[in-house]
Design a protein around this nucleic acid. Structure first.
Lengths: 204, 204
DNA sequence: AAGAGACGGCACCGATCGGTACCGTCTTAG
DNA sequence: CTAAGACGGTACCGATCGGTGCCGTCTCTT
């Protein structure tokens, strides 16, 4: 066996789900495309839902590894790395099989928030937000806690826009917005609060 | 007949499609929920695809009417109206049946760009972008042509984020980003180009 | 060489998909 | 009052959905 059945199922399903949507792809399609027998499929996975969760979990891990290594690969100083995220996105958007964010797509397709697929997708977005927070912190931004969700909104907006327009322009557009955001004069009241927090650090 | 069958089909289908997704809702569900007979459905619509396009077209028109009248209803000066869009969004996000943007959802669900549903959805987004452009122009922004797609990216980002987080916070977040964006120092080269365009206006 | 486990193929299940045909009823306009 | 048309109900169609069971083969390990 060149490649194990389980692996073939995962990669085939990931490609089909991403390209056409989870609901649009039946088990039969995955079986014939992967060359795996029907019985073997149900030996490896409890059912389609189980496969979906496994596919998304794998993609989550690999996607975040890709982002981290791509941003690191640019070799820019820490201060520039938050913006470099949008350069990485531009690479993604230019791929000819780009079909948006698999996790956003899943949260929209799997309307039920309790479903396993929906929760894996939600967890992915939280993890990426945390990564942005870390990048901002390493860049020395005191306002990282406010900026991270704002950058995340720009990331998701860029992804949806790129999908909608069918070209990668949205990445540079989002980067320009992020530049304006990072250049923003911090709210003076917030700044005072932050300074106080440092001075009284740890006190209660 | 209190309400005509066609109307009941459209409103019922719109609710179900928006709440659960187009693919997730079968014709049978729409029929039983609306109380319309199967034959009557196919008398009014060529098929499910036809119904989907009709539903989306209606929603497109009503959604844009709602946005325009809501923004106008705030009674703010023209200069503040672009930002008021995000106040309107906040109202939408707070509705308990909020499930994101029906058109983004459709473009994601209907992966085929050639499908009627996909194209209606794409046209909706273009129309909203034009509306933003008009608001910015009326606000006296020379850079309206660059700003409109940027605001649109923020709108879509806010919608997706609000859906993801399950609360309306993303609206104020996007508004703060938009404020930073509108306060941005215009690119001096762009400003020169704009000034030139005015001076040589209409010349060729 | 032999046994075990992984595998692909296939038949089959009930449920549901989108869609068609026909029929009796109810409303409405002339 | 009557004829026409809109309507709801139902039976039915082939196709596909997710899922189960069995069977023969192929490949490893011992």
């Amino acid at each position: 066996m060149a490649v194990k059945a389980r692996e073939r199922l995962l990669t085939t399903a990931e490609d089909l789900f991403y390209a056409e949507g989870i609901r649009a792809v039946g088990v039969e399609r995955i079986l014939s495309a992967s060359g795996v027998g029907r019985a073997s499929f149900y030996r490896h996975f409890a059912g389609k839902d189980d496969l979906v969760v496994a596919v998304l979990s794998g993609r989550d891990e690999r996607w975040r590894d890709w982002l981290r290594s791509t941003v690191d690969g640019y070799g820019r100083p820490a201060a520039d790395r938050p913006l470099a995220v949008f350069d990485a996105l531009a690479e993604r958007f230019a791929r000819d099989d780009f079909r948006g964010c698999a996790f956003i797509n899943t949260m929209i397709e799997a309307a039920d928030r309790e479903s396993g697929a929906h929760q894996v997708a939600a967890a992915h977005k939280s993890a990426v937000t945390e990564y942005l927070d870390a990048l901002l912190t390493e860049a020395g931004r005191d306002d990282h806690a406010e900026l991270a969700p704002e950058l995340m909104l720009l990331v998701d907006g860029a992804i949806v826009t790129a999908l909608r327009e069918g070209n990668p322009d949205a990445a540079v557009r989002a980067k320009r917005i992020a530049e304006a955001l990072l250049a923003r004069q911090p709210d003076p009241r917030e700044a005072v609060r932050r300074r106080l927090r440092v001075v009284t650090g740890g006190m209660r």
